[in-house]
Design a protein around this nucleic acid. Structure first.
Length: 361
DNA sequence: TCTATTTGACCGAA
DNA sequence: TTCGGTCAAATAGA
């Protein structure tokens, strides 16, 4: 466990370095270009790539302990999470993103892959077959292909915001041959469209609560304005994703846990999170250094049903592969848990300790 | 008219 | 060479 904690800390350090370099690059991009600034850009890009490659190596090393596919059933729909390591680099990956290829001159030799994970959704005969396509995001179908050996064609979808915000998230929907009520959905890439809007501050962060995503982003924005070391984690959270392979409805928790009652507020040192925020998967509860053990937070049943949205939203919210895992506590209880398998860590001189279970009001 | 879907063609990895 | 993934023109629908 100590080794795991050390590697977790190292991973956080690597990612934070990458984050800082990316910020530097962003600042430099606003400076009038010159030959020297271009060299600086190149240098920063190389450093960032190096850091993330190193981080990916660390994650791959840890991926051997990944759990088994799990399932959740709710309102006649069974969802089996069967994820590949989202950040791993696989030589056999089917992923082919031309945008990445264009951006990376080395891609011809070493192909980069986007995070990829698969889930199976079983719908009851009475449920419309369109249901699996509604996962909380806006998808646009861009192709359909007959697959060798498959009875049903495979549908290809990309994020509607691809052109506007450059969101590279895609998904493939394949109906099962054996059971037409089962859909296998493969997600590729992360929804950067949610982050894009996150970088555009609004005058009143609490104003726009039209959707789960927007609310989530506003919460992030309001918290990022806090001059607190937590910001480091908030920033880190933006570029990472959570593993959900432990989403097992029958999973008994052997460890202590706390819950967010649906009517309660969560208070940290600097902010209070209300129930609606939690229901919209606002992440601050699990990035607070004051939390410990397993954190459960309530979500609306619709969010639970749209596990695709859940996965993607959480993906845009946090995580370090295999460091943080999500669990469900009961089949019909829309409650998820986030586990921090380490008690202490340090970021840029700031010590974070999970030692205050009396964190909730 | 605008937006989304369909579908044949094309490209690249294996 | 095959096959999966994507492109883009044609088409449909609001």
């Amino acid at each position: 466990m100590d080794n795991m904690g050390d590697s977790s800390n190292n991973l956080i350090h690597e990612l934070l370095q990458g984050l800082e370099l990316a910020k530097q690059l962003q600042k430099n991009l606003h400076v009038p270009s010159s030959s020297s600034s271009r060299e600086t850009h190149e240098l920063l890009i190389q450093k960032i790539i190096s850091i993330f490659e190193k981080a990916l190596e660390m994650i791959n090393w840890k991926s051997g302990s990944l759990g088994e596919p799990s399932s959740q059933q709710s309102l006649g729909v069974t969802i089996r999470m069967s994820e590949s390591p989202p950040l791993s680099i696989s030589p056999h990956s089917e992923d082919s993103d031309r945008d990445l290829t264009e951006q990376d001159p080395n891609a011809s030799r070493k192909r980069k892959t986007l995070p990829r994970w698969t889930k199976q959704i079983q719908v009851n005969p009475g449920v419309g077959v369109e249901w699996p396509l509604d996962d909380g995001y806006n998808w646009r179908k861009y192709g359909q292909k007959d697959i060798l050996g498959a009875v049903y064609p495979r549908g290809y979808y990309r994020c509607t915001h691809r052109n506007v915000r450059g969101c590279l998230a895609t998904k493939q929907v394949q109906r099962s041959d054996e059971d037409p009520n089962v859909f296998e959905i493969t997600y590729k890439g992360k929804h950067t469209c949610t982050m894009a809007s996150n970088t555009m501050p609004t005058s009143n962060p609490n104003e726009n609560q039209e959707s789960n995503l927007n609310t989530n982003q506003n919460v992030l924005h309001s918290l990022e304005q806090q001059p607190n070391p937590n910001e480091l984690l908030l920033n880190l959270r933006e570029g990472l994703r959570v593993q959900t392979e432990h989403l097992d409805s029958s999973n008994d928790q052997p460890f202590s846990s706390f819950h967010f009652p649906s009517s309660s507020n969560i208070k940290t040192e600097n902010q209070i999170l209300t129930s609606p925020m939690l229901e919209n998967f606002s992440p601050p509860s699990y990035i607070s250094p004051a939390t410990s053990g397993i954190g459960h937070f309530s979500v609306s049943p619709s969010v639970v049903n749209n596990l695709g949205g859940y996965t993607s939203m959480v993906s845009s919210g946090f995580q370090i592969n295999d460091m943080i895992s999500a669990t469900t506590s009961a089949a019909n209880s829309p409650t998820f848990g986030i586990e921090f398998p380490f008690d202490q860590f340090e970021i840029d001189g700031h010590n974070f300790t999970f030692d205050n279970p009396q964190f909730f009001s």
